[in-house]
């Protein structure tokens, strides 16, 4: 479904990604793991067009994304749940969700999808008129995921959905991701919470200093000695 071939990216003179190749098949959940500053967030930003590709090829369902302006990428079915949620703090929950349905194809189905999201997250229905900035961390994450779902995506890019949340809430968020998988969404997730995320995904890539170090099934990586020592700390 989503495919990266030797993708490089840079911030000014600083190169953040080197020859990254990665693919996500329809219906799969894939994780990108790695330490802080490895380029995980950069990877997602490149896919959703926030950062241009410096070299390499990037395709969604066989169609190249390189010639699309950033705001058209979401139309191909890629929705990005951003790092730190990035809700519009002084807009209501419902207005945030409305922004998720901005693209032409999604506007007509706004009401219908709003019901779906409210069904998925009853908490959001309760707080629909509340400013997003006043929500708790877990609720904000629900709102951010809901906003991404409003465009009717095929694949969800999730950037550290568990960051900054209390352990109980982290459980809930991962439970949520699991439910989304059940609903048939394809997921590409970036996480630091290696142990938990490996229980959730089919496959994973390990990113270090902007390059893919290793990849494999979740089970393989969970058993990998070096990875265990470096990130799981057991």
């Amino acid at each position: 479904m989503l495919e990266l071939r030797s993708v490089s990216a840079r911030y000014g003179s600083f190169q953040a990604l080197f020859d990254v190749s990665l693919d996500v098949r329809a219906g799969e959940a894939v994780a990108v793991l790695g330490p802080n500053g490895a380029g995980k967030t950069t990877l997602l930003r490149v896919i959703s067009g926030l950062l241009p590709v410096a070299a390499g090829e990037l395709t969604m369902e066989g169609r190249s994304l390189l010639d699309l302006p950033p705001h058209r990428i979401i139309e191909t079915g890629i929705a990005h749940v951003l790092e730190n949620r990035r809700l519009f703090p002084r807009m209501s929950v419902e207005e945030n969700l409305k922004m998720g349905a901005f693209i032409r194809g999604a506007r007509a189905r706004f009401r219908e999808r709003l019901d779906v999201v409210y069904e998925l997250f009853p908490r959001m229905a309760e707080r629909r008129d509340q400013f997003a900035g006043t929500l708790s961390g877990g609720e904000q994450q629900m709102c951010a995921i809901g906003r991404a779902l409003m465009s009717g995506p095929k694949i969800l890019l999730m950037d550290e959905p568990s960051a900054g949340l209390a352990p109980v809430i982290v459980e809930q968020v991962f439970g949520l991701v699991d439910r989304l998988r059940g609903e048939g969404y394809t997921v590409l997730i970036v996480e630091q919470n290696v142990q938990q995320v490996l229980q959730l995904v089919d496959r994973a890539y390990l990113l270090e200093v902007g390059s893919i170090k290793t990849s494999g099934s979740a089970a393989e990586l969970a058993a990998d000695e070096t990875l265990r020592r470096a990130y799981i700390g057991i």
Partner: peptide
């Protein structure tokens, strides 16, 4: 939708492209 997007840009212009908004 456009009016909401205009207010949204005032709050966080950087992420608008991920919602399909051409700033």
């Amino acid at each position: 939708f456009m009016g909401t997007a205009i207010r949204a840009v005032a709050q966080d212009r950087e992420i608008m492209a991920t919602m399909g908004v051409n700033t």
